[in-house]
Computed example of a mutant assay.
Amino acid sequence: MGLADHYRTLGLRTGASFDDVKAAYRKLARKYHPDVNPDDQRSQDRFIKVTKAYEALLEVFQPEEEAENSASAAEKSAAEPPSPVQKNPGLSDHEQKLKQDSYRQLELLLKQQKYPRAIALVEGLAQRITQDLEVRQWQAITYQRWGRQLINQGQLSKARIYLDKALKTDPLNKSLWVEINRDFQAIEERLK
Rank of each mutant, 00 (worst) to 15 (best):
Y103C: 02
Y143I: 04
T51I: 04
Y115N: 07
Q44Y: 00
S92A: 00
R136T: 05
D35V: 06
R13K: 14
P81E: 04
Q155K: 14
D5K: 15
L12K: 13
A56L: 05
A24V: 08
L98R: 12
D39N: 08
D45H: 12
A24C: 08
P63I: 03
K22P: 05
R128L: 09
I151A: 09
G11C: 08
S17F: 03
Q96F: 04
K111A: 08
I129M: 07
L176D: 03
N88A: 01
R128D: 04
Q112S: 02
S43V: 00
G2T: 13
V36S: 11
A186W: 04
I141C: 01
K27N: 13
A118R: 03
E188N: 14
D45A: 14
Q127A: 11
F18S: 13
I141V: 10
R13W: 01
K111G: 12
E95D: 13
I141A: 08
T130M: 06
A67R: 15
E59Y: 06
R190P: 01
R13Q: 13
K114Y: 00
L191K: 11
R30H: 06
D20K: 15
M1K: 13
Q100I: 01
K31Q: 15
A159W: 02
E107V: 09
S83P: 06
A71Q: 12
E59N: 12
T14W: 10
W138L: 02
L106V: 02
K174W: 04
R190D: 01
E95V: 01
K76Q: 12
E134S: 11
L28E: 04
K31V: 10
L150K: 14
R190A: 12
K27Q: 14
R190C: 00
S77P: 01
G154D: 01
D19P: 02
W138P: 05
Q153H: 05
E68Y: 02
L28I: 05
